[in-house]
């Protein structure tokens, strides 16, 4: 709703890229980077997983669910909803596949 005043230049939020790119299996154990961007830890977790997926189709909901065992399906959906509203992610081949905007 808020009209943005152009010309301010891009003070974009510095998205911290965690240095643990090789560590794919792990669950987020809280920590500092779970609180970046003003997202909830759940939202961050979802975003992080989507970011880590480099396929052209992004990450499917089923895969997210599988990787986020213990997280409520509705919570995941809400996180996806929020993230796509914010523009962090977008749906690709269908509404169940998401890709991160700052991936490439």
């Amino acid at each position: 709703n808020a009209q943005s005043t152009p010309g301010g230049g891009g003070t974009s939020v510095a998205l911290s890229t965690p240095a643990r790119a090789g560590n794919t299996g792990g669950s987020f154990t809280g920590g500092v980077d779970a609180q970046t961007n003003g997202l909830t830890p759940h939202q961050n977790q979802v975003l992080f997983l989507i970011k880590s997926c480099k396929g052209s189709e992004g990450m499917g909901f089923e895969e997210l669910k599988a990787r986020l065992q213990g997280m409520n399906v509705n919570t995941i959906k809400q996180a996806l909803d929020f993230l796509s509203n914010e523009g962090h992610i977008y749906s690709t081949v269908d509404d169940d596949h998401y890709k991160s905007t700052d991936g490439d």
Binding site: S4, T5, P6, G8, G10, T11, S12, V13, S84, N85, E86, G87, H88, I89, Y90, S91, T92, V93, K99, T101, D102
Partner: peptide, 20 residues
Amino acid sequence: LERIQRNKAAALQKLAARHV
């Protein structure tokens, strides 16, 4: 594929609008 590009463009715009 066109849909993907469109979604991506829309998402990037949203993102930009959030972080002015």
